[in-house]
Write a protein that binds this DNA or RNA. Sequence first.
DNA 1: ATTTTTGATCTGTGATCACACTTGCTTTGA
DNA 2: TCAAAGCAAGTGTGATCACAGATCAAAAAT
Lengths: 244, 244
Amino acid sequence: MTTAEATSGTGDERGPLFSPVERETVQDRVYATLRRALICGLLEPGRILTIRGLADQLATSTMPVREALGRLISEKALEALPNRSVRVPPVTLERIDDLVHVRTLIEGEAIAMAATRMNEADVSRVRTILLEWDRFRNLADQDDFDNEMTLNQRFHFEIYRCSGSAVLLPMIESLWLQSGPCIREAAYAFSAAGEADTAHCHRIIVEALAARDPEAARAALAADISRPFKTLRTRLKAQKADKP
Amino acid sequence: MTTAEATSGTGDERGPLFSPVERETVQDRVYATLRRALICGLLEPGRILTIRGLADQLATSTMPVREALGRLISEKALEALPNRSVRVPPVTLERIDDLVHVRTLIEGEAIAMAATRMNEADVSRVRTILLEWDRFRNLADQDDFDNEMTLNQRFHFEIYRCSGSAVLLPMIESLWLQSGPCIREAAYAFSAAGEADTAHCHRIIVEALAARDPEAARAALAADISRPFKTLRTRLKAQKADKP
DNA sequence: ATTTTTGATCTGTGATCACACTTGCTTTGA
DNA sequence: TCAAAGCAAGTGTGATCACAGATCAAAAAT
C-alpha cells in the first residue's frame, strides 16, 4: 500500500496524484504503425497488402490487423479490391489534382480559422517546432525522411488544431493519409532544394499567423501544399509519355 | 450448362450477357444497416451501442458487428468512449455550428464544381428525382421519414457525384453520417412547413444548375443546409435555458 | 507448342472460445 | 439507515478454427 492510498481512502479528493494509465490495444498499435508508414510514404502506391503477411511482420495474430485495415479502408487510406484483397491506392494525374484541390480548400479554411483564433502562446509553439526543425536539419545531414515528415506533420497539425473545428481535423488527417504515398514519390525529387523551399514557405506561414492575416496564411499554405505535388505531376507526365 | 455457356466458351467476347454477381458480406450488410439508421436519424444522440446487443438484433455473430462499428467510428459517425463502449455522438451547440460551417464549405464546393460540369442528361436526372419526390408527397400523407430522407439523399448525391471528385464524395458521406442524428432531432419541428421550404430550396438549386451558375448553386445549397440546423439550434438553446 | 484442366496453396470471412475489465446489485458490516 | 466490500452478469479484445473463393503452377489434352 502506497502513502497516497494510506492517507486518503479513495485518493480522489487531493488533486491528481496519478494520471490515468493508458490502455493501448494491439489493434491500436497496428493501426498506428500502418498509419505512420502510410503518411511517411513507406508503402509505394499499388502495393497489395495481405492480412497474414502484415500479421507475421508485426508479430500479432490476424485479428487486430484485419480491423486496422478495415479502419484504414473506410478512411480511404487503403483500397478494397473486388478480389477482397487490399492495396494502397495507385496515383493518377486526376487523383493528384483532386487531392491538391481539396487539400487547399479544407486546410486553407482551417488555417484561416486558426489565424483569427491563435494567441501568442499558440504562435510561439509553432515557432518552436520550426526552430527545432532548423536545428535538426543542420545537425543531421543524412536523409532522415521519417523525422522530416514527423516534424512537418507536427508543424501543420499544431496550426490546424487551433482552428477549433472538431469536424475539420479528422478530414485533414484522412487527406494526409491519402496523399502520403503520393508525396513519397516526389520526396526524392527535391531532397536538397525542396527542403529549403519548404522552410521558406513555413516561415511565410508563421509570419501570416503572427500578423493574424487569414488570407495571407491561406495563400502561403496553398503554395506549400501544391509544391511537392507539382514536381510529382511533371514526373508522372514524363513517365506517361515514356511508356504509353 | 446454360445456353450462353454452350455457345461461347468463356462468354466474355460477345458483350455483357451477365452482370457480375454481387458478393455481399455479412459485415457489409451490418454496416449498411447501421449507416442507414444513422443518416435517417433512427439512433438518438448519446445512445450507447453494444456489440452483442446489435448482433442479437441483426441475428448475426459479434464479428461482423464489431468490424462495422470500427468502420463507423473511424468515419466519426460513432464515438469510442474510454470505457471501451461506443455511442452515437451527443449534439452540442458548438458541434452544430461546426457541422454547418464545414458542410457549406465542402458541399458548396462540390455543387459549384458540378454546376460547371453537368450536361443536359445530368440535370434532367436530378429533375426526375424532384418530380418523384413531389409525387410521393402528394400520394402518401403519412410521415414516412425513411423515404423522405432517402429521396433527399439521392437528390443531393446525384448532384455531388457530378463534381467528379473522388476525394470529396467520401467526405460528404461522412458529414451526412455525422449530421444524421442531429437532423432527426430537428425533423419533427418542420414536418409540415419544412417540407415545403425544402422543396422550394431544391427547386432553386436545380434552376441554378440548369443555368450553369456555380455561385448561385452554392448559395442556394447553403440555405438548404443551414435551415434544419437553425431550428435545431434555437430548440437546443431553449432546452439549455430551461434546465441549465 | 499452345491451351485447358486440375490440384495445391493462400487469403479473407465468420463462428466460437478464453481472458480481462467494467458495471450493477446484493450482502455485510458499522 | 447507509456505505463499503464482494459477487455475478455483461462486454470488448484477441486467438484459433472451419470454410469458401482466388491464385498460380504443373500436368494433361489438343
